[in-house]
Each structure stands twice: as structure tokens, then as C-alpha cells.
Amino acid sequence: MGLEDQAAVKRVADEHGSGVVVLLGTPDAESTQTLAQTVVAGDPSYAGPLAGVPLGLPVFHVFEPEVRDQVPADVYEAQVALMEMSLDRDAILAGLREARRAATTI
């Protein structure tokens, strides 16, 4: 995540306190894992405002079945379905699982 974006995420998470969740639209496993790590455990590159700041936010990806099931089908079709077909969904979700697993073992 860019440094400026980290600052915005940190500010919004601070301002809203509880009940904040992060929803990702990342296109590959690596970016998914990095972003998820950043908003859960802190910036893994130790470069941005979230370095060493474990926000511990619940993080999901729009490709996850439990997200898709909550979105009206026509909306999901228009906003997401094409990318779900073109991107490697399984790898992306594996990246997310890996980030979650790492977060629970900190």
C-alpha cells in the first residue's frame, strides 16, 4: 500500500474506532497478502505510517463467497464478476488466508 494511503487508512480507523472492516479488490496473491498484513499487523516494509501499528482490522476480499453472498447478484455481476473470471481467484484467496494465518501467530 502506498504511504499516503496508509495514512488515510490509519486516520479513518482511528476516527471510527470499532466496527471498521477492510474490503479488498486486489488483483493477485502477493498484493492481497501485503495489503491484508498491513491493515492487520502493520506495514511489512516498515516504511509507512502503519509500520509497527497493528490495527487488527478484519479484512476480506470481494471474491470471498461470504462477501459475494451478501451483495445483490446483479450488483456483483456488474462490479466484480468480470475480474473474478480474469484474475486468479484461488491464488488471491490463498494469499488472504496466509495473511490471516500469519496475523494469528504474532
Binding site: P27, D28, L82, M83, M85, S86, L87
Partner: peptide, 8 residues
């Protein structure tokens, strides 16, 4: 990524 989206 962009070519795969086009193909999709």
C-alpha cells in the same frame, strides 16, 4: 492482467 480482462 489487462489482456486477461479483455479476453474475459
Amino acid at each position: 492482467n489487462n489482456y486477461r480482462t479483455l479476453a474475459s
